[in-house]
Amino acid sequence: MPDAVLEAIDIDVRFGGLQALSSAGVTADAGTITGLIGPNGAGKTTLFNVITGHQHANAGDVRLLGRSVAKYGVHRRAQLGLSRTFQKLEAFNSLSARDNVLVAAEMHSGVRAAARQSDEILERVGLAEVADITVGTLPTGTARLVELARALAARPRALLLDEASSGLTEEETAAVGSLLKQLVDEDGLAVLLVEHDMSFVMNTCSHIHVLDFGQIIAVGSADEIQNDPAVRSAYLGTGS
């Protein structure tokens, strides 16, 4: 069985009287792409925020490579190999695409190595042409790719993508999908993605977790999830 790179176990999050997550958990293994889906308001981004450390959990644990990181802050977890992109695009808008990636690369490498790595990543993601363009002036799709490139430059063991296809065309989405598959196969990366684009999820992910009202209601392969009645009623309501 492939090693679990990232594990979130029994996460509870309460906002005042509202239970946002209860005993939610998710696993991402090395060399796989895992999907996290669910209707709006299910708590997907909250779970992401707990994993990366942006949100404090009332109970539960987060483990990276077997080690608990629950006590660590966001940047420490990042240094240990956890990267993410954001639902609302959070690129460094005043910097060029290359500089965006450099910021991440420089966290762990010297000047020349970082420059080299950045150029490689930009090439790989297909951003070489816009390397010097200010990200704030790039179209959304390209900017999302920059965000992805930046996340990769941090040399993650686990990569969390929050609605990476949002704002992308079909072409671009497909390109991202194949890039992810490449990364996962070549580098043994563990990818966990939150998505609304169902076809993208079904095509890309080997494992899928379904979240509804803060609880995991199903885990399985694409086929299993597609045929799960609980999932269907969560998305479509009762009946059908």
């Binding site: 940047h75 959070e90 460094f92 910021v103 996340a151």
Partner: peptide
């Protein structure tokens, strides 16, 4: 500059 643009994102790439 990255920190000014997005403090949250900066943390996610390891910036303390």
């Amino acid at each position: 500059v990255a920190m000014q643009d997005s403090q949250a994102a900066a943390a996610t790439v390891g910036v303390n």
